[in-house]
């Protein structure tokens, strides 16, 4: 049993290390799905993408609708949903980081 506990703590610690590596970027992707016929979530198509890097760089791919005249128009419905997901992801990432810091403190007790 002590070995099992030791191993679990080791796994958590390894995960923290990996997390810090992976936390360098945050990726949020939003897809859409044609509901005609029998919708299959495996066939969804990418509609918007945001990649935020730890150094502050940010890249967003915005869904647009082509118009006959003038510039393309942002597809506001799906982009709004995407933006909501970006906010939720940022908030979640912050909470996870906070929780991991708490774990580190616990391990040091």
């Amino acid at each position: 049993m002590p070995n099992e506990i030791e191993q679990t703590i080791k796994n958590v610690a390894e995960k923290i290390g990996k997390y810090i590596e992976d936390a360098a970027t945050l990726t949020v992707q939003t897809d859409y799905l044609n509901t005609e016929g029998n919708p299959d979530f495996g066939q969804s198509r990418s509609a918007a993408l945001t990649v935020i890097k730890l150094d502050g760089d940010c890249k967003t791919v915005v869904p647009v609708r082509q118009r006959d005249t003038g510039p393309a128009e942002i597809e506001s419905g799906i982009f709004g949903l995407h933006q909501q997901n970006v906010s939720t992801a940022i908030e979640y990432r912050a909470r996870i980081l906070h929780a991991l810091l708490e774990v580190i403190k616990q391990i040091r007790i």
Binding site: D22, D31, L33, T35, G77, A89, R93
Partner: peptide
């Protein structure tokens, strides 16, 4: 939505949702 352990999000929506329906998943 698939949220991986580092907090990356990948969401698929059906295309025919109005705002109130979409708000449900959020």
């Amino acid at each position: 939505t698939a949220v991986d352990w580092s907090g990356d999000f990948h969401t698929a929506w059906t295309g025919d949702l109005d705002q109130a329906e979409a708000g449900l998943h959020s």
